[in-house]
Simulated scan of single mutants.
Amino acid sequence: METSASVPVLRIGIFGAGRVARHLAPALVAAGHQVVFVWNRRLAPAQALAAPLPGTLVLPALTPPLPPADVYLLAVPDAAVAPLLAAAAWPAGALVVHLAGALPLSVFEAQPAVRGGVLYPLQTFSPGRDIDWPTVPLCVEAGDAASEATLLQLAHSLSRHVRRLDSAQRLKLHVAAVFANNFTNHLLGIADALLAEAALPPELLAPLVRETVDKALAHPPFTVQTGPAVRRDAPTLAAHTAALAAHPAWQTLYAQLTASIQAQL
């Protein structure tokens, strides 16, 4: 049996039922693969994840033997990967794959009976938000050629953007992603709160935010930086600092970001 793209069907076991697993499991099925089981520390989320997936079992415990699978995906928090690797009775030679950006391939060295790999989806996952999987960069790393080939097959069945990255490259990418996504979202949250304090609607910033992102994607962002920090506009910087008097942490952040911008000039 093969997928419509002539990619071999893979039997996949999923450990975890959080945000990534809830987005990834149906995408795997849509790509033609078989999710053979779901395990989660709490049973109810695993049952909810497995329910709409055809033929997917729910493992109530890690009691051996694990159902056979071509790939065992660890869709769990980074800190849970090593304990899970130690707790499960993996079949000899099992291909076990984590999805983390900052966790190195070497985490598998403590379990020499398994083949380790990484399938890192460079995307943010939130409830109620659909993911356009063909556009999501998928970063692959594996400890041997056969495992890499399997992961590349799996990745290409989901996305048009697949890259081989080693652990050091992936870590740097993850740091960059935190700046681009998590920190940016936090700054937008601060902006939203400041607007609310002034009884102003958040949609006032929408055109500015869209233009900022579009411009940063079209040019090297440092080269298109604008604002009072670039102009070294001391009166405006002082007025902004005073306006943030009720928020000393945001005042400090404003000063740090201003200094960082000016250091790039």
Rank of each mutant, 00 (worst) to 15 (best):
T3S: 07
V7D: 03
V7Y: 07
P8A: 11
L10K: 14
R11Y: 02
R11E: 10
R11K: 13
F15A: 13
G16C: 09
A17Y: 05
G18K: 09
R19M: 12
R22L: 11
L28I: 11
A31G: 01
G32N: 06
G32T: 05
Q34H: 13
V36P: 00
R42T: 15
R42H: 12
Q47V: 14
G55Q: 11
P60E: 15
P64Q: 10
P65G: 04
L74Y: 01
L74T: 03
A75H: 05
A75V: 12
P77Y: 11
D78G: 02
V81N: 10
A82F: 05
L85N: 06
A88D: 08
A88L: 12
A89D: 13
A92F: 10
A92G: 11
G93N: 07
L95A: 03
A102H: 02
L103Q: 08
L105M: 12
V107M: 09
F108D: 07
E109K: 14
A110H: 04
Q111C: 14
Q111F: 10
P112C: 09
A113N: 12
R115C: 11
R115S: 08
P121N: 11
P121A: 13
Q123E: 06
T124F: 02
G128R: 02
R129N: 04
D130K: 15
V136P: 00
L138Y: 00
C139I: 08
V140L: 02
E148F: 09
E148K: 05
A149V: 07
T150V: 15
T150S: 08
L154H: 01
S159Q: 01
H161A: 08
R163Y: 06
D166Y: 04
D166E: 08
D166F: 02
L171P: 00
A177T: 01
N185I: 10
N185Y: 05
G189N: 07
A193G: 02
A196K: 06
E197A: 05
E197L: 08
A199K: 13
P201S: 14
P201C: 12
P202H: 12
L204P: 01
A206D: 03
L208S: 03
T212G: 01
V213L: 15
D214Y: 11
K215F: 03
A218Y: 05
F222D: 15
V224Q: 09
T226L: 08
P228W: 09
R232T: 04
T236Y: 11
L237Y: 02
L237A: 05
L237H: 03
A238S: 12
T241M: 15
A242I: 10
L244M: 10
A245D: 10
A246L: 12
H247M: 13
A249D: 13
W250G: 07
T252H: 13
T258R: 13
A259S: 06
A259T: 09
Q264A: 12
Q264C: 12
L265S: 14
L265E: 13
